[in-house]
Design a protein around this nucleic acid. Structure first.
Lengths: 263, 263
DNA sequence: GGCCCTATTCGTACATTGTACGGAACAACG
DNA sequence: CGTTGTTCCGTACAATGTACGAATAGGGCC
């Protein structure tokens, strides 16, 4: 239908793309973030304050106006440092990637690849706990910034030479990251629901009761009813997503172990 | 800090919560979607048209105004059928869950649990391919609707009695869904980038070249450079996320197999 | 020191979003 | 033919990202 209808907005007067300029975004990521402007503002400062804001109030509360307000500058001033909001979130994400490990060989120093992967998963999990907005970013993974590349390298090192092909190494890491991110999303969703419906889970059962009734009394869902029961008990007791993640990781690593023939 | 500061907006004049009413949302999901209004409109029709729109133009283009326009009704008319946009997307998602299997025993009929899980993963993957917006929804998983519960039950059945506890069954399924959704996100991200930067990937390498140079010439990232190379080759060749998913699934299932002691 | 030019700052404006509000049109019932 | 309650929807509002261009400040050159 309107497959290409949205391509030419402006008359394309010379510059190729006024809005999305991937080259500029990349240059920004890899460039210097500490060169101050006229009023002493730096990209780094913007990114840090924005991160604080997102940590405290969630990604939904992260608006250019709020960031500018917190920094005590005009809203549009931010745009002389950063092309747009997407680039800001990219910067925020990439910066965090630099905080994961103390040095590029930390995971490898675990010795066994399995321990290394567990460390990697744990660090990423903790990062997601500290920064709930990380898992909410629209972009599945942020643009390729220096810290992300560093992280990639750091996490690949303990896998190098254990018997996996390059592509398998990448696939394994990707799957682990997917697991962690997925668990983080679930975790934050539950957390938010818990504090949205406020106080006791007494009330939670009241609103959910009609559905649960329909669920249980009908034998349409025999297995779901029973498992949902167990899961519900577990859920209220502790952090279910973390258990799920641990379980999935074990399975994944056992699978790797089998693929490698033996430990 | 502002933990509870945002609780009381309005004077709370009687009705508990004017905006987020989980009970109503749940009732909506489980209620009838075919009762027509004055002008013959039904919830089902709204949901279907909205789904078409999201399929064709992406989640970003899905606005209440557009949906109403397509349906030929006033914008606010939608609000007499659906409490808000979130509920609409919940309805859309839940409806799709009903299209996954022909009957509640289809996966179980595969015989072996491994084949069943592969079928389950494949179906969910195909669904994500058909509806890119599904993986973009903010809510990690939609609200508990009838079709989602049905799907849950259907997918649990082949796992029942093979030697896993209820919680393990749930965790396994959750992890598989996470894998699929993560792969879908990556897939759609690559797809979008490919058609955003338009025509040849010639140009892609031009914009990405400076970064890649910095990446390769520095020996800061020895492993990442090499693996990224392999991965880049693979990426251009075919659908990398799908391969990654297949790989991760195999590992996961091998892990399950080991846990069960033997096939 | 004085002046000009360029890069930075940012007030205003606009398009777009979800949706609250309340009047208008309509159906059913007496 | 009212009356009443439901459904429809035009208008309005607050919030968003950001384009535009006027004000402004700083730094180099005479």
């Amino acid at each position: 239908m309107s497959q290409k209808a949205a391509a030419d907005d402006k008359k394309t007067d010379g510059k190729p793309a006024p809005q999305p300029d991937p080259a500029r975004s990349l240059a920004l990521l890899w460039g210097s973030h500490t060169r101050p402007g006229r009023n002493g503002l730096t990209i780094r400062a913007i990114v840090e304050k924005a991160t604080e804001l997102a940590d405290a109030e969630g990604l939904a509360a992260l608006s250019m106006r709020r960031v500018a307000e917190v920094l005590g500058v005009g809203t549009m001033t931010l745009y002389s440092y950063v092309p747009g909001k997407d680039d800001l979130t990219d910067l925020m994400a990439d910066r965090l990637m630099g905080t994961l490990y103390s040095d590029p060989d930390e995971p490898k120093r675990c010795g066994h690849w399995r321990d290394a992967l567990l460390l990697i998963a744990e660090r990423n999990w903790q990062l997601h706990l500290k920064h709930p907005w990380l898992a909410e970013l629209v972009r599945p993974r942020p643009r390729l910034g220096p810290n992300l590349v560093q992280k990639y390298d750091t996490e690949l090192r303990p896998l190098d030479g254990i018997g996996l092909s390059d592509i398998e190494m990448d696939a394994l890491l990707t799957n682990i990251m997917t697991q962690v991110e997925g668990a983080a999303r679930l975790h934050h969703r539950l957390e938010r629901e818990k504090q949205d419906s406020a106080q006791t889970d007494e009330e939670w059962w009241l609103t959910q009761a009609p559905v649960l009734d329909r669920l249980l009394d009908a034998q349409r869902f025999p297995v779901a009813a029973r498992v949902g029961q167990s899961f519900g008990d577990e859920t209220k007791a502790a952090a279910a997503p973390e258990m799920t993640l641990k379980f999935g990781l074990e399975l994944l690593l056992d699978g790797v172990e089998k693929k490698l023939g033996k430990t």
